[in-house]
């Protein structure tokens, strides 16, 4: 499975109904949904995941689970997204189907090279701009870092962190295959329109 170009990945937030958010994101043209909810039980995640997976299939979009490889394996998601504090990509690669989409969050060329060596399918690179979505004590890495990090991994890059309508096109010009957002869609008064506008900007 390869990563589509000019992809919008919408990540679920900690407050919204994740299934409803996914439905709106897909309606707006998102090509990938990532289920991420740190506080949910395994059963909640499993049930949400099954429903979001079904919506993604209807829209020919990819569905991946953040961190919880167990949930991804149990409900046969398209893949899993791993942070630096999660299982290594090599462990996921060993347990998952050969075609599974395995993403790894990186913020440096060294982490990117390691992710590639361990069998990642793509790298999530960030945070590019200042963001309040996550506790990020570190400085944003900026758009110039995208090309350097992509070169170290030789993998498609999904850029993340503070991406909105105004800077989405710039991120793609800087070498990213796609963008990942949380609040730009989930905090919008009209998530469908917000996703649609982001897709338009990255395809310009």
């Amino acid at each position: 499975m390869s990563l589509p170009r000019r992809l919008l990945c919408v990540i679920t937030d900690e407050q919204s109904d994740p299934v409803e958010l996914a439905r709106m994101a897909l309606e707006g043209g998102a090509g990938m949904v990532q289920l991420r909810r740190k506080t949910a039980s395994g059963r909640e995640l499993y049930e949400w995941a099954l429903r979001i997976q079904e919506l993604c299939r209807e829209h020919q979009a990819l569905f991946i689970v953040n961190d919880r490889l167990d949930i991804a394996l149990a409900m046969k998601a398209d893949g899993v997204h791993l942070g630096q504090q999660d299982l290594p990509a090599s462990a996921a690669r060993a347990l998952f189907d050969p075609g599974a989409m395995i993403g790894v969050s990186v913020s440096s060329a060294a982490e990117a090279a390691k992710a590639a060596e361990e069998g990642a399918s793509y790298i999530g690179v960030g945070h590019i701009f200042p963001t309040f979505s996550k506790d990020k004590p570190s400085e944003p890495i900026g758009t110039a870092a995208i090309r350097t990090i992509r070169k170290a991994a030789q993998l498609p890059v999904i850029a993340i962190g503070g991406i909105d309508h105004d800077n989405a096109a710039e991120v793609i010009r800087a070498g990213a295959s796609g963008i990942a957002v949380i609040s730009a869609v989930s905090d919008s008064s009209d998530p469908v329109a917000a996703a649609r506008e982001l897709v338009k900007r990255i395809r310009q």
Partner: peptide, 27 residues
Amino acid sequence: NERFDIALASKAGGVHLPESSCPADAV
């Protein structure tokens, strides 16, 4: 506890599911 992925990846012998885990038959 719960994470059978970690159990498999670390060559542990077992997994213990809390009541609120993802369904046992899927595991």
